[in-house]
Amino acid sequence: MAYSIKNQEGLYFLTFTVVQWVDIFTRPVYKDIVVDSLRYCQEKKGMELFAFCLMTNHLHLIARAAEGQLLSDIVRDFKKYTSRQVFQALHLNQQESRRSWLEWIFRQHGQENRNNEQVQVWQQHSHGVELRTPTMVQQRLHYTHQNPVRAGICYRAEDYLYSSASQYAGLETILPVTLL
């Protein structure tokens, strides 16, 4: 089911999922591509980022577009850029034991999707829910930050490096966000 961004000025809970739920984000090199791209979107594209959590096969964000920007354009550009960068990094990472398998999956999905040229890392549609009430915001913020705890990656959300939970707990973070 496609969840489109109808209100370009709204605050959204977004989920981007890797094709076939492939666990690509298990290595720092791929995770850092996503974090660096989010930072770029904040600084240059007008993305207002309020929360994030990068898991092994999906990404959760709470974000909106700055005035005069379109959130759907930011999302499209982010997914396109990170797809290319992750796929290129597969070739540069000499330690990648899954290279052939990952390339095959990403190429297969790219060939099956007429909207792509060759490769597809992210699923075509993003799950976007407009957060219209303070209760919805708090529920999605909690859900986002508790994701690695529920997955058994850490005991406390603020200990997970690839999440904004640490900033909400008053600790250092790899990617600063605007607190809600």
Rank of each mutant, 00 (worst) to 15 (best):
W122T: 07
W101V: 10
Q124P: 13
T135V: 12
H109G: 08
I105N: 03
R98C: 09
S100L: 14
E130K: 03
S97D: 15
Q118P: 03
Q108C: 11
L131I: 00
W101L: 13
T144F: 07
P148M: 03
R140N: 09
S126M: 09
R114D: 03
Q118I: 08
R98M: 12
H109W: 12
R150N: 07
L131E: 00
T133W: 00
Q120H: 09
T133S: 10
R98A: 08
R132Q: 13
R150L: 06
N116Q: 11
V129D: 04
E112R: 09
I105S: 02
Q139N: 15
G128K: 10
H145E: 01
Q139K: 14
V119N: 05
Q120S: 10
G110R: 10
E130T: 10
R114I: 03
Q120E: 15
V129L: 06
V137C: 05
L131M: 01
N147D: 04
T144Y: 04
W101E: 13
R140K: 15
L131F: 00
V121E: 03
S100N: 13
R150K: 14
N115K: 15
S100M: 05
H142Y: 06
Q95A: 08
T144S: 05
N115Y: 14
T135M: 02
H127A: 13
R114A: 07
G128L: 04
V137M: 11
T144E: 01
Q124H: 11
N147M: 04
S100P: 05
R99T: 11
I105Q: 08
R140W: 03
S126Q: 09
G110H: 06
E96I: 13
V129T: 09
F106K: 08
E130N: 04
V121A: 09
V129R: 02
S126P: 02
Y143C: 04
R99H: 12
H127F: 15
W101D: 14
